[in-house]
Amino acid sequence: MIHLLGFVAALCGFVLLCAAMQRHQTEIFGARLAPALGRNLRYGGGALIVAAWLIDALGLGWAVGTITALGHLTLAAGLAIALLHWRSAALKKARAPARSKQA
């Protein structure tokens, strides 16, 4: 249960951090976000990463919890990259027919 919570917090954290980066915003939303929103996403993402560590550390003890949190962060970042890839591929696909209709 702790593992699931820690991992989900880390995953949400990385998704927010990714969405906070201007270079990925067009891939995710199709447009850039307002800088203020981007900043808030970054703070939120950072907070969730810290939360993931705290969840693991309080649930499993500081030593094992910290090691586990690093593992969760690695796995979560990997999955966040996969999600980004799927999202941008889906977005491209959705836009392709729209564009060809315009042409």
Binding site: H3, V64, I67, T68, G71, H72, T74, L75, G78
Partner: peptide, 13 residues
């Protein structure tokens, strides 16, 4: 078991 899988996946990484 959970942490073992994380070790294993990191090793694969």
């Amino acid at each position: 078991p959970d942490l073992r899988w994380l070790y294993f996946l990191s090793g694969l990484g």
